[in-house]
Amino acid sequence: MTGSVLAAGAAADTPGADTVIEVRDLRMRYGDKEVLSGVDFTASAGEVVALLGPNGAGKSTTIEILEGFRLRSGGHVRVLGVDPASGDEHWRSRLGVVLQSWRDHGKWRVGELLRHLGSYYDEPWPVAELLDLVGLTASAGTVIARLSGGQRRRLDVAIGIVGRPDLLFLDEPTVGFDPEARRDFHDLIHRLTDVDSTAVLLTTHDLDEAEKLADRILILATGRIVASGSADELSRQVAGESEVRWSRDGERFVHSAADATGFVRDLFRQHGEAIGDLEVRRASLEETYMRLVRDAEGAR
């Protein structure tokens, strides 16, 4: 079953003209420990891709290699057509980077820092528009050290996009957020990908977040991509069985079926009008994910 998901992913993994990330057989080892053992994927312009996996799966290592902050041990990597290990400042100006934790520039005011960092780019976002986009207009004059965790994170995103990047990296963007801040943040990312054709690569260990934000999810476990596809594709192709519930003559029934549609068709053919309360539930992404990660870790 896993094989068919990889095959479906492979069709989308052929680099095209609008490919922004191209990774083939990416390997990374620290001493004797191999953290990435052959990662393959691509991402296209305007696409939101989530790199999902348990802690220690190599998500941050992967994103740092793509950002040009870490040298890989082996494999082929192109980001916006350039090898990140030798990316120049022009290449850098087309990327936006939001890292896991910043505490920098605590004495600066929000608007002041955005204006300053924008000045490194040729066509930065106007500060007022940017503040409006991330919902920080009221905090323009606030000293950064006094921002709340959620506000600080939105400022980080504003800084990440101030140069109108073609590709934005978000490393664990909502760690430590309360549910409301998390939802606001997700809205922000949606708005962002609506106004521009910015491609986004985000890492997360939060399944719900990957499902809400990403067009495509790559599941990274034990140093390789074990599955890729939309949330829907993943749960359809990997978990297989769906749960069908219905009632007939006041009695309730439950059945697990690989082909739920066919099963329901038969059901109606046999009993017609007598069927009520029909409910078909596909295996959740969470079940899919847990199973994939368990399989990968078991196979190691």
């Binding site: 950002e67 850098r92 910043w102 505490r103 920098d104 490194y120």
Partner: peptide, 20 residues
């Protein structure tokens, strides 16, 4: 200090940021 709090990394993430 700037390495500890990420100021330097921020500069690195910006084009020509280290020079500035």
């Amino acid at each position: 200090m700037d390495r500890e709090d990420g100021t330097l990394l921020r500069a690195k993430a910006v084009p020509n940021g280290m020079v500035g």
